[in-house]
Nucleic acid binder design. Structure first.
Length: 848
RNA sequence: GCCCAGGUGGCGAAAUCGGUAGACGCAAGGGACUUAAAAUCCUUUGGCCAUUCGGCCGUGCCGGUUCGAGUCCGGCCCUGGGCACCA
């Protein structure tokens, strides 16, 4: 028996890839050696490097880039394996696949680590980047590393700064004093998206309210488009779309003016229930509402209440749902329809940031208004009832559902929707109301009082005010040799950074010391990969070749943070003329978490499994195989050391199959007519596997079922004993096809075995096989025979057998017929190729 | 409280369009090989009844539609996730 010997990793085989030269004669499966060998082959052949001149059609696969925390964790391994499998599959399908990788390198952990380890955030970060890059390569992921983006490098962030100044010039970025979420541990402001259950998303500390001057980007200007665009994102999981829909939180209603009886103008409220306007018994204003603040100056009780509200923590505000407090103002307003004088209250449950910060309270039909009214003895006036129902006592409980209006002159008998229309017409005609659409979504606060982030390119000039840094002066470099002591940003004390001149008047001025929220960097990196080395602009025409991303892969935890911001930035870039199309990511796969003992892996739980240890023990191919086999990609995956061993056992079995079949294989073309009966079965199975696996990879994205099908075919091939000469040709075909189909998941072992079988070229570039339709056209089926829906047996049926032939065979089959008294058959349900159900008349069914 | 997923053997899971429930793998039991162990191979494995042929039950619970339901419909329970004073 002559087998090609192992290629020597030290002397990679030449491009033609016969792989016959080399020194190794050992037949053992040694992952470490073959993985290094395969990786050096791909690198030498530049398999993963693509550009826009490639004649193959483009396909862009992107996995969410990691924060360089130091080492990869299992979540990364899963995420990037899914991405790599999709990329390798599409490459074999003939696409020029762009799969880039980079690092989301700004962020707070670098500052903490720098203090702990007496190093600088820059050095710490860059060293982590190097480590993690090595780990990614060790796993065999096929990235075009020429395009690498490390976001803390000026070549990248200068364009982020430039983009921000453009937005500023267009009024899409602005600075404003605002009540913000302040994280007292991280000493910084948080966006609403970054507050989870009243706590900072990273520190976990209770967030407090503070009024600080902040930079904002006007995401609300795109709220409608961001919402509407979700409808067309059919390649996204419904779950993510729903979460974004909730987050944007559109509601449409009416803004209504209530005239102040002191003659000083009006208070404007926002309501979605104008149909209840005759049920209004008071107005409630947020504690931060300007009218409240003004009144508090001369009202000490009110002033105390306002100060108290300001100090409460966000979390308490959430818990205190039941505790609705308020203080009355010495002010009345006029009801716009009845002219009645209504009291005005400052109330804890009204939010300054939503609507107009003021509501018309209808205690009979709103649970919050109701509780507040009961607590302070305010009147409750029902104006809605449900048709055909006596209904509960409106004094005891609010009726919040829509219904039919009563006790409302001019609206009586109308349903809620009709009544709203009429109120809008009445008040609109008098200029006392206008339709309004409000969103839960707020403008994105992007200022962070941290050091390790992208400097906000603005200068504060005593004479000219806030001035953007001109494009030719960008980037504003973040000084990297800083003295690092405590929690506050070293930029505040760094005169070399802060002291500058005004770009306008050239007199001394001060730089902005806030840095950007790190979600800024990840909002546009997908586009920069396409124009990674463009030196004089943010992007260039190459983005039109690659964008949008065909397949994006990442964790569900970014459903409303990163994925909403990136969609927003894409629209900004589109409106500035840099990209085409409305959405950045056509298809999205949200992969599930990696669990151990039913819980998310974390240091505090002590259940972390280090990917590097797994690779050292079992090899990258085994790790990748297990990740794909153990669960569908969008579900959580339970880590199992025994499962990993099972995956390794499978790869060893495949290795042995190639070895063992060496003497019984013959190269050539399969002629189905010349196969033995068993050979024909295997041939059919081969082509069914090709069809099934292709469907699983390309359409369903269920890699676990694809692996199961490959294991079945492997088992069949191992058991197969060739009898006809053509059987030997078939066996060769099956073994080779197995390698091709498994390659996206376990690329190294398959590349090595391919080389060993004398396969031409690199398997990584081998065309994907097509199933032979002749093999899929079956001549024989096993169909199930049921009697009254109960399975009673199985019957082998030929393609040409008629229904009546099948029926008579069932009635004469000894095992089946005893369940069927022939005179009792009521009807035959026949599903071709599937089953036959014999339905008996009830009273004549046989007892067991 | 509102919205959304999910609940299938001892475990991870499969069943793709309403048509054989448990593919594939893990674990466990039995056996082969071995002086022995590891590795590997063969074999059994949802529950109950039966010496055998075989039968009955079984996809969270209760009901319904259907010749036929893990899959569709109604109600409920549990787990996980998202949102949560949004007017």
């Amino acid at each position: 028996m002559i087998l090609p010997s192992w290629p020597d990793p030290a002397q990679p085989a030449p491009g033609c890839g016969s792989g016959t030269e080399g020194l190794m004669t050992d037949n053992r499966y040694d992952p470490e050696t073959i993985e290094a060998w395969a990786q050096s082959r791909w690198q030498k052949e530049r398999v993963f490097e693509v550009d826009e001149h490639d004649p193959r059609p483009p396909y862009y696969v992107l996995s969410m880039f990691p924060y360089p925390s130091g080492r990869l964790h299992m979540g990364h391994v899963r995420n990037y394996t899914i991405g790599d499998v999709m990329a390798r599959y599409r490459r074999m399908k003939g696409f020029a696949v762009l799969q880039p990788m980079g690092f989301d390198a700004f962020g707070l952990p670098a500052e903490n680590a720098a203090i702990q380890n007496q190093t600088s955030p820059a050095r710490w970060t860059e060293s982590n980047v190097a480590t993690m890059k090595g780990q990614l390569n060790r796993l065999g992921f096929g990235y075009d590393w020429r395009r690498e983006i490390v976001t803390c490098r000026p070549a990248y962030y200068r364009w982020e700064q430039w983009l921000f100044t453009e937005l500023y010039r267009r009024g899409l970025a602005y600075r404003e004093k605002a009540w913000v979420n302040w994280d007292p541990v991280d000493q910084t402001v948080l966006a609403n998206e970054q507050v989870i259950d009243g706590r900072g998303w990273r520190s976990g500390a209770p967030v407090v309210r503070r009024e600080v001057a902040q930079w904002f980007i006007r995401i609300t200007a795109y709220a409608e488009e961001l919402l509407e665009g979700l409808e067309r994102l059919t390649g996204w999981p419904e779950e993510v779309r729903r979460m974004q829909r909730n987050w944007i939180g559109r509601s449409s209603g009416l803004e209504i003016d209530f005239e102040r009886m002191d003659g000083k103008g009006a208070i404007r409220v926002f309501t979605t229930r104008a149909d209840t306007i005759f049920g209004v018994t008071y107005l409630a204003l947020a504690p931060e509402h300007p009218v409240v603040l003004e009144a508090a100056r001369t009202d000490s009780a009110l002033d105390g209440f306002v100060k108290n509200m300001r100090q409460r923590e966000m979390r308490e505000a959430a818990i205190e749902t039941a505790d609705r407090q308020g203080v009355p103002l010495a002010l009345r307003v006029r009801h716009p329809l009845t002219g009645e004088a209504l009291p005005v209250w400052a109330a804890s449950f009204v939010l300054e940031g939503y609507g107009t910060g003021a509501i018309m309270a209808v205690p009979a039909h709103d649970a919050r208004d109701h509780e507040f009214a009961r607590r302070y003895g305010l009147p409750i006036r029902p104006v809605i009832h449900l048709p055909g129902e006596g209904g509960a006592d409106p004094q005891a409980q609010a009726l919040t559902a829509e219904g039919v209006v009563f006790d409302s002159p001019g609206l009586d008998g109308l349903d809620s929707a009709e009544a709203r229309d009429r109120v809008r017409e009445w008040l609109g005609a008098r200029g006392a109301a206008q339709p309004a659409v409000r969103y839960r979504l707020r403008d994105w606060g992007v200022s962070r009082q941290r050091y390790w982030g992208c400097p906000i390119p603005m200068v504060h000039c005593p004479d000219c005010g806030t001035v953007p840094v001109p494009a030719e002066d960008l980037p504003v470099r973040l000084p990297e040799d800083v003295a690092f002591s405590g929690v506050s940003s070293p930029l505040l004390q760094d005169e070399r950074f802060v002291a500058t001149t005004c770009p306008n008047c050239h007199r001394p001025a001060r730089r902005e010391t806030d840095t950007f929220d790190t979600f800024m960097e990840s909002s546009w990196y997908y586009a920069r990969y396409a124009a990674y080395d463009c030196p004089d602009a943010i992007l260039d025409e190459r983005v039109h070749h690659w964008l949008p991303v065909d397949q994006y892969v990442g964790g569900i935890e970014h459903a409303v943070l990163h994925l909403l911001y990136a969609r927003f930035f894409h629209k900004l870039l589109r409106d500035l003329g840099w990209v085409r199309g409305d959405e950045p990511f056509t298809r999205l796969l949200s992969q599930g978490m990696v669990l151990k003992d039913g819980a998310k892996m974390s240091k505090s739980k002590g259940n972390v499994v280090d990917p590097e240890a797994i690779i050292a023990r079992h090899g990258a191919d085994t790790a990748r195989f297990f990740m794909m086999f153990a669960a569908p990609p969008d579900q959580s995956l339970e880590w199992s050391e025994q499962g990993v061993e099972g995956a390794e056992r499978y790869l060893k079995r495949l290795w042995r199959l190639v070895d063992d079949s060496a003497s019984s294989r013959t190269e050539g073309t399969v002629d189905p007519a010349a196969l033995s009966a068993e050979g024909r079965q295997l041939w059919i199975r081969l082509h069914e596997t090709i069809r099934g696996v292709s469907h699983d990879y390309g359409v369903r994205g269920t890699f676990n079922t694809a692996m199961a099908k490959l294991m079945e075919l492997t088992n069949s091939a191992s058991r197969f004993e060739p009898s006809a000469p053509m059987d030997r040709v078939l066996l060769d075909q099956v073994v080779r096809t197995l390698l091709v189909l498994l390659h996206p998941v376990s690329p190294h072992i398959t590349e090595a075995l391919w080389s060993r079988l004398g396969g031409t070229g690199l398997l990584a570039l081998h065309p994907w096989p097509e199933a032979d339709p002749c093999a899929l056209e079956r001549e024989q089926w096993e169909i199930v025979v049921q009697v009254n829906g109960k399975r009673r047996g199985i019957l082998s049926v030929g393609r040409d057998e008629t229904e009546s032939e099948i029926r008579s065979r069932i009635l004469t089959d000894a095992k089946l017929a005893r369940h069927i008294p022939s005179e009792a058959v009521e009807r035959w349900v026949m599903v071709p190729g599937r089953l036959v159900n014999v339905v008996l008349r009830k009273e004549e069914s046989l007892p067991p």
